[in-house]
Amino acid sequence: MRVKVLFFASLREQLGTPGEELELPGGVATVGSLREHLSTRGGAWASALEKRKNVRAAVNQDMAQPGAAIRAGDEIAFFPPVTGG
């Protein structure tokens, strides 16, 4: 399935991209598995998305936990903990 992935703030800078559309292999159906899938690209992807890093996510613009399901056409965003206000 095809999804849109977005990155913000320090994560966007580390990865060198604000996001992309990509085709997911079968078996990648949750936020957590998408994160793992992206980290297998190695380099900055592996270090920015590694497990111990505090990375938050949203699915279709709602905060989401790693177990949240993703579906074709979804917009999934990854970002560091927020610091507004």
């Binding site: 703030a9 320090s10 970002f79 903990p81 927020v82 610091t83 507004g84 206000g85």
Partner: peptide, 14 residues
């Protein structure tokens, strides 16, 4: 509202 905004609204300061 301010306490929740600080932890739930997607803003990042540089």
């Amino acid at each position: 509202i301010m306490d929740y905004l600080k932890t739930r609204a997607p803003f990042w300061k540089k």
